[in-house]
Design a protein around this nucleic acid. Structure first.
Length: 423
RNA sequence: GGAGAGGUGGCUGAGUGGCUGAAAGCGCUCCCCUGCUAAGGGAGUAUACGUUAAUAGCGUAUCGAGGGUUCGAAUCCCUCUCUCUCCGCCA
């Protein structure tokens, strides 16, 4: 959500950003609605004010009974008008709020213009592409041939886009979670959190998944609408919702490992084979809550923290700055990390690191007390995967494969695998 | 799931229809006093929205949330919600 004052006073900047995103949001009708609403607020407040004044007179002890009943009937007329105006104000402000939740974040100036991922810009790359003296297989072939990855059983249980893993493969998958959490907490300064995997709709609204992306969420049938989390970003970031932090508490750096659930609506036909795109996957998430002036430094730091995992695993990757059309709804600026997948002979997204500025904190009503200005202000929130477990698992299988279909365990993971060297 | 108790400002805690945005204490900030590792005195100290150049004023709203009664509600009524205690069930 954007500040309504910003929308009013910096209309040009906002509409430029919307244009850059190719957003179909109708800023003009929003602004008209907003103006109408503010006019109504004035009317309502004036009525209330005069009502309050009359009530003060009624309460005064030296008023005569006659005057009193006159005043009471006067309030009666005001109340009638008030009720009408209040009702239309309620309707209007609800509409306005609903509309404001549909406005995407303003893009940072450094975001390149573009309509699709083709226009994303490579910022840097790391690692040497592996050379194989045999034809590298893809992860599903590798896993299925050894019985370590089982899509058929998963389909029996849950339908398409789920997976069952077995033995060394399941263990490797678990090793990755432990390894990532340990690096982020022991080396990169994050506090490990354990969080609910089911949240209220407010939380999804807070981080921006709702109302716009309802189709991608798993909603639980219940008295109150509850949702399976699509990412730990949701519970982690919402930890600060509806609160006023003290500046001394910032920056907050949190990490959590959770499963993530996504309907993948609209991705029919995309990555149907294998583990790349699943309805259920796991992720170690990184979240920063920072002072506004520090958020772009924090974005660089967070991205490097995510990269550190790939470097330790010795997986080649590149860092992409997303273009305007590819940058998510809540983000002002996003770096994607893309890991090398030999079977596809290309880089695939494995992490997405975003600065959401005050977009989410506004929606969540999360503020902090600035001890220099003594003002309450919105902190900036950032999030990134550090990393997606399933896709890292795929990358390890494919990059560490041997000709016989076995997988060499990366050195850093061996302690988590009882020192097994291969699976 | 059953029974009961309760949700007031950063915290503790008063307050049963108008003088309460809210006593008092604690904490915090600023100032004054004081030659000593302390104490005393004074002032200030919520959030949101509207108005505005303004984070100056002014107005409006907010005592868990929503609705009702009333000229007027933190105070009365209803619904919901959350927390706590006891019982049941249970990883």
């Amino acid at each position: 959500m954007l500040d309504s004052k910003t929308l009013r006073k910096e209309t040009k900047k906002v509409s430029l950003s919307l244009k850059k995103r190719a957003s179909d949001f109708d800023l003009d009708s929003y602004l008209k609605m907003d103006q109408k609403m503010r006019d109504l607020i004035s009317t309502v407040e004036e009525l209330r004010s005069s009502k309050n004044n009359i009530n003060k007179s009624i309460a005064s002890p030296e008023i005569s009974e006659n005057d009193k009943s006159d005043l009471i009937s006067e309030v009666g007329t005001i109340n009638k008008k008030l009720k009408e105006s209040e009702q239309s104000l309620n309707e209007l402000s609800e509409q306005t709020k609903k509309m404001s939740l549909e406005i995407p974040n303003i893009l940072d100036e450094s975001v390149p213009e573009g309509s699709s991922e083709k226009e994303n810009v490579e910022v840097r790359s790391w690692g040497k592409l592996p050379k194989f003296d045999f034809e590298p297989k893809d992860h599903s072939e590798l896993g299925e041939s050894k019985g370590g990855i089982d899509f058929e059983s998963a389909a029996k249980l849950s339908g398409s886009r789920f997976v069952v893993m077995k033995d060394g493969y399941a263990k490797l998958h678990r090793a990755l979670k432990q390894f990532m959490l340990d690096v982020q907490t022991e080396e990169n300064g994050y506090t490990e959190m354990y969080v609910p995997n089911i949240v209220r709709s407010d939380c999804l609204e807070g981080t921006g998944q709702l109302p716009k992306f309802a189709d991608d969420q798993y909603k639980i049938e219940n008295e109150e609408a509850l949702y399976l989390i699509p990412t730990a970003e949701v519970p982690l970031t919402n930890l600060i919702r509806e609160s006023i932090l003290d500046q001394s508490e910032l920056p907050i750096k949190m990490t959590a490992h959770t499963p993530c659930f996504r309907q993948e609506a609209g991705s029919y036909g995309k990555d149907t084979k294998g583990m790349i795109r699943q309805h259920q996957f796991e992720k170690v998430e990184l979240v920063h809550i920072v002072k506004p002036e520090e958020s772009y430094e924090a974005l660089e730091e967070l991205t490097k923290n995510a990269e550190s995992i790939l470097q330790k695993l010795n997986l080649p990757y590149r860092v992409m700055l997303l273009c305007s059309g590819d940058t998510g709804f809540s983000a002002a600026k996003t770096y994607d990390l893309e890991v090398w997948l030999p079977s596809q002979n290309t880089f695939r997204e494995i992490s997405s690191c975003s600065n959401c500025e005050s977009f989410q904190s506004r929606r969540m009503k999360a503020r902090y007390k600035n001890s220099d200005t003594k003002q309450t202000d919105y902190p900036h929130t950032l999030n990134g995967s550090g990393l997606a477990i399933g896709r890292t698992f795929i990358a390890v299988l494919e990059n560490y494969q041997n000709e016989d279909g076995s997988i060499t365990i990366p050195d850093v993971l061996m302690p988590y695998m009882q020192n097994r060297e291969r699976i």
